[in-house]
Computed example of a mutant assay.
Amino acid sequence: MAIYPDKKNGELTGRFRVELQRGKDRYRKRHDSFQEAQADEERVQVLWATGGDIHAPVVSPAAPEGMTLRRAVKLAQSILWKDMPSAPTSWAHIRDFLEFTGEDTLLDDIGTQHIRDFRDHVASLGRSKATVNRYVAHVRKFMIWHLEEGNRTVPITKQTLKFDINRETAGRLRWLSYAEEETIVSLVPANVGKLIRVAIATGCRRDELITAKLDQIEGNLLHLWVTKNDAYRAVPMSPETTAMLRELIETRTMPSRRVLRRSWERARIKMGLQDDHEFVFHSCRHTCATRMVDAGVDVLKIQKWLGHKRIETTQRYAHVTGAGLVEALALVGERKAQVTQKASNSGSPTPPPHAPHGGEMMQIDLAA
């Protein structure tokens, strides 16, 4: 492997650098994602082996006239979502789209109504709004990839192909109390319990953990090269968490998706939470975020820790708990007592603070 995280002034840039050398020939190039860097490395190695020109521009193969969905899936299957933990799910959604829309449907003929009909079909199967939106998002990525590769010739605009998604309600963000954490860990197999501990401590997604390798662990830092949004991030761990994750990998006892799902479901029933449909393994991620908020961690740091591109996503996790509101009320009461005491000691009322100079006004967000 000749791919390295790119750095500038000692800081990671989030990009990846390909460095290859063969005799006097040396090749270096930066890419925005690990997948792009990996594909470029393979391309250069093949060209060197066959005597090709590594500096020749990369040209996508001409789009077959009238490319069908069936052909489009075969063409993209070895490239799109390559090496991504979510690849099986992404391709399952694409195959569902293929079956529903018709494998002989032409890429250029797919329009907004196709997407809406497929979205409504998935919803009719009882899928949640969030799940339906993921189906649509995967189809969107599939279509945009083919447009960029030149396989779809009709531009994707609001007039030709619109990817409508369901408006998701905020809903209830379910996290585990400390008592629930102890209970579920006691009800599942030991290796599943360790994975739950690691998930709560790190806030990592399921697939980020169950696909982790030893070379991703550096000291007490977990490097995540392949993530949901294609952005590298490093997650700090305590020595205890690091030891548990290492043990799961080294002893090859990391639970599979199926084992994890079945173990969690059985424990949920034993806990009397069979009707609590939001009590899922992803709740461990909510739990990590909630505990950081309760500990007073800045929301921007939580955003970086969890790997969110948009701060709005983090703010959904960074909800205010009832305990936080009680604490806020206590702080207001303490401040009022201090001001009142100061005023009584001085014998004159305390004037309000001066407004900022230069005509600027403080911006305060008030929640109705």
Score class of each variant (00 low, 15 high):
residue 313 T to E: 04
residue 362 M to R: 04
residue 174 R to Y: 06
residue 191 N to Q: 06
residue 256 S to R: 00
residue 223 H to C: 03
residue 75 L to A: 10
residue 141 K to V: 15
residue 203 G to D: 02
residue 333 G to L: 07
residue 190 A to Q: 12
residue 142 F to S: 02
residue 13 T to G: 09
residue 34 F to S: 00
residue 327 E to S: 12
residue 315 Q to Y: 04
residue 301 K to E: 06
residue 239 P to D: 15
residue 139 V to L: 05
residue 18 V to Y: 14
residue 324 G to C: 08
residue 118 F to A: 09
residue 38 Q to S: 15
residue 276 D to A: 10
residue 72 A to M: 10
residue 226 V to T: 07
residue 324 G to M: 14
residue 100 F to H: 13
residue 193 G to Y: 01
residue 338 Q to T: 11
residue 45 Q to W: 13
residue 219 G to L: 07
residue 92 A to V: 00
residue 89 T to S: 02
residue 171 G to Y: 03
residue 81 W to H: 04
residue 5 P to S: 13
residue 223 H to M: 10
residue 343 A to C: 00
residue 235 V to I: 12
residue 146 H to E: 01
residue 282 H to A: 14
residue 272 G to D: 04
residue 39 A to R: 15
residue 333 G to Y: 11
residue 130 A to F: 10
residue 24 K to N: 10
residue 217 I to N: 03
residue 85 P to E: 00
residue 97 F to D: 01
residue 339 V to P: 02
residue 189 P to T: 04
residue 167 R to E: 06
residue 219 G to F: 11
residue 341 Q to F: 02
residue 358 G to S: 11
residue 51 G to K: 07
residue 141 K to T: 14
residue 123 A to C: 02
residue 125 L to I: 01
residue 54 I to Q: 05
residue 246 R to F: 15
residue 57 P to E: 12
residue 300 L to S: 05
residue 288 C to Q: 05
residue 67 M to Y: 00
residue 51 G to M: 09
residue 271 M to P: 14
residue 277 H to Y: 09
residue 291 R to A: 06
residue 56 A to Y: 01
residue 39 A to M: 07
residue 207 D to V: 08
residue 292 M to P: 00
residue 183 T to L: 12
residue 141 K to D: 01
residue 338 Q to E: 14
residue 66 G to W: 08
residue 275 D to Q: 03
residue 27 Y to A: 15
residue 192 V to T: 04
residue 73 V to R: 14
residue 49 A to D: 14
residue 60 S to D: 15
residue 55 H to Q: 13
residue 71 R to F: 10
residue 277 H to T: 11
residue 17 R to K: 15
residue 293 V to A: 05
residue 172 R to Y: 06
residue 304 K to H: 09
residue 246 R to I: 10
residue 287 T to K: 04
residue 91 W to I: 04
residue 318 A to H: 05
residue 235 V to F: 02
residue 340 T to Q: 13
residue 28 R to M: 07
residue 317 Y to K: 08
residue 1 M to L: 11
residue 12 L to D: 08
residue 350 T to W: 12
residue 157 T to E: 13
residue 40 D to R: 14
residue 292 M to W: 07
residue 136 V to L: 11
residue 118 F to P: 13
residue 368 A to C: 05
residue 276 D to V: 15
residue 255 P to S: 01
residue 259 V to Q: 02
residue 106 L to H: 02
residue 221 L to A: 07
residue 300 L to K: 08
residue 8 K to V: 05
residue 13 T to P: 03
residue 353 P to S: 00
residue 251 T to M: 04
residue 41 E to S: 14
residue 154 V to F: 11
residue 67 M to E: 11
residue 294 D to N: 10
